[in-house]
Simulated assay, not measured.
Amino acid sequence: MRYHGHIPAVAFLSQFRAAPNLLTLLRLFIIPYLVIEILAGHYLAAFALFLLAGLSDGLDGLLARWLEQRTTLGLYLDPIADKLLLSTLFLTLTHVGLIPQYVTVLVFSRDFGILLIATLLFATGTLRDFHPSFLGKTNTFIQIVGLTVILAERVLAPHWPALHHLDYPRRALLDAIALLAPVSAAQYAWIVIRRISAPAQPANPA
């Protein structure tokens, strides 16, 4: 369902009651507690909260389709919640020494650059639909897998000390994240430039 024009404040606020948006708000609510548990070294609780956030992310999309509750609020709130969750985890895990600083710098530089370009294009009316590219989706997927592996490793390591010496998957994932961040940003910029530079399509005759 598409929404055009100005949405009355009451109607907009009523969208918070939609089940998918409530799940998205739950994901936002989880973030500070996730940070608290990581800083306290309670990785089992942190891992459980991360899985709960991932479950809510999958369910809100399904509910939006099943209940036909796709809203303007959800259109913006869902990706914001996802990005806040991932970005906060990268910052927190970097702070506790589990993710190298250069990886987080590259991730944040990519996200900031894309956000800046998208904001400028949207504000000027140049381009209003932003679909993630294949590399962008791959980048996000690898980030999620990498964060899952890091947290799972901290949960399992006390029970299997040998895991401390088997950190190749974690390092490979972090290297992939560091590589995909600038590459996917470059692809996004190239797609935007090509779409802006494309000649306008002539209107079909009546």
Rank of each mutant, 00 (worst) to 15 (best):
R110L: 08
L151N: 04
L174W: 10
R128F: 03
D175M: 05
L85T: 13
Y168R: 10
L166S: 13
S197P: 03
W190A: 01
R154L: 15
T71N: 09
R194V: 00
L75I: 05
V107L: 10
V145H: 00
P100L: 03
W160M: 11
L127C: 01
P79Q: 07
V183M: 14
L67R: 06
G97H: 13
A178Y: 12
P158S: 15
V96K: 11
H165W: 15
H165A: 11
I196K: 14
Q187H: 12
T140H: 00
A178M: 11
L151T: 01
N139V: 08
I117Y: 10
R154G: 00
D78T: 08
F134L: 13
L120V: 08
D78V: 09
T104E: 10
T148R: 05
R154W: 06
L156F: 14
L86W: 03
Y76N: 12
S184L: 10
A118S: 13
P158W: 10
T88P: 03
I196T: 02
I196H: 13
L85S: 05
P100G: 06
T124W: 08
G113A: 11
A123N: 00
L77F: 09
G97K: 09
L63Y: 15
V96I: 02
R194M: 09
I177C: 07
A152T: 01
T119A: 11
T126C: 15
R65S: 08
Q101G: 11
L75E: 10
A189E: 02
D167A: 15
V145Y: 02
A189W: 11
V96Y: 07
I80F: 06
W66I: 12
F112M: 05
L147Y: 08
F141V: 00
I177D: 12
Q187S: 01
I117K: 04
D82L: 01
S184N: 01
D175I: 15
L135Q: 06
L93W: 05
A181H: 12
A123H: 03
G146K: 02
T119S: 14
I80V: 12
D82C: 00
L115V: 11
A181S: 13
T126H: 14
V96P: 03
Q101H: 14
I80M: 05
G125N: 02
L98I: 07
D175H: 15
H164F: 11
A81R: 06
E153Q: 12
P132D: 05
L98H: 04
R65V: 09
L135T: 04
L173I: 00
H165G: 04
V192W: 06
A123M: 06
F122A: 05
D82I: 02
P100M: 07
E153A: 02
L67C: 10
F90L: 05
E68Q: 02
L120I: 11
A178W: 09
A123K: 04
I99H: 02
